[in-house]
Simulated scan of single mutants.
Amino acid sequence: MSKLLKEFKEFAVRGNVIDLAVGVIIGGAFGKIVTSVVNDIIMPPIGMLLGNVNFTDLYISLEPERSMVDGKHISLAKAAEAGVPVIAYGQFVNVILNFLIVAFCIFILVKAINSLHRKKEEPAAEEEPATKECPFCLSEIPLKATRCGHCTSQLAEEQAR
């Protein structure tokens, strides 16, 4: 039993698990922010442009006679209270917008991370060689050498350049 607990402890404090936990917590908080942006900032002006429509109240009643009072549709909250079966497509539109915003933010984040990785992986520009090969002994010698340091051969002027 203690071996199992020891393995679990090693697993739980491993860096990747902690990073994942932090990511999930931050992701949850980010999801709440996006939900607020959609519900409180984006949808009200769109609803106003469409004739003062509240998207959270848009639904299709599966029992129309139970969702009407004095010839008008009741709100989604009242329909749910009354137990009227509905298709709440307005809330679905809000959820789709939430998803699209979160997906776009993740796309931008992944794209930025990938561009950072590409910059790190790019090979350094090749530099001019600092050495050359002696034609007599085939040893590496400095590029500007006029005499080989290994075999002491005199190098031609063209080779020295």
Rank of each mutant, 00 (worst) to 15 (best):
122 E>C: 00
141 I>S: 02
40 D>P: 01
77 A>T: 09
114 N>F: 00
141 I>D: 01
17 V>M: 10
22 V>M: 12
95 V>C: 07
130 A>M: 06
115 S>T: 13
146 T>S: 15
1 M>I: 03
58 L>C: 15
2 S>C: 08
53 V>K: 14
37 V>M: 15
73 H>A: 12
56 T>R: 11
108 I>R: 11
53 V>W: 01
98 N>V: 08
96 I>E: 00
118 R>K: 15
125 A>N: 08
22 V>Q: 03
100 L>H: 04
59 Y>T: 03
105 C>S: 13
117 H>D: 12
40 D>K: 15
144 K>H: 05
89 Y>W: 15
79 A>T: 04
113 I>K: 15
154 Q>L: 13
91 Q>M: 12
108 I>F: 09
156 A>I: 07
5 L>K: 11
80 A>K: 14
68 M>T: 15
26 I>P: 03
63 E>Q: 14
160 A>V: 05
81 E>A: 11
34 V>T: 07
39 N>C: 06
73 H>G: 09
58 L>T: 02
90 G>P: 10
126 E>N: 06
131 T>Q: 09
5 L>I: 01
34 V>I: 15
11 F>P: 03
139 S>D: 12
128 E>S: 12
65 E>N: 13
69 V>W: 01
86 V>W: 08
111 K>H: 12
17 V>Q: 03
55 F>K: 01
94 N>G: 05
96 I>Y: 06
61 S>W: 02
96 I>G: 05
16 N>C: 00
79 A>V: 00
85 P>G: 08
9 K>D: 10
89 Y>M: 00
152 T>D: 10
150 H>M: 07
58 L>I: 07
119 K>S: 11
97 L>Y: 07
44 P>R: 11
109 L>H: 06
72 K>G: 04
16 N>G: 12
29 A>R: 03
5 L>F: 11
24 V>F: 09
89 Y>E: 05
85 P>R: 05
109 L>D: 01
67 S>D: 11
58 L>R: 07
142 P>V: 07
52 N>T: 05
98 N>I: 07
109 L>M: 13
67 S>E: 04
135 P>M: 04
62 L>K: 12
58 L>Q: 15
63 E>V: 14
110 V>L: 13
72 K>R: 13
120 K>L: 09
148 C>Y: 05
138 L>H: 14
90 G>R: 10
111 K>P: 00
94 N>H: 09
45 P>W: 09
75 S>K: 02
130 A>N: 09
42 I>L: 15
128 E>Y: 04
26 I>S: 09
73 H>R: 09
73 H>L: 12
91 Q>C: 06
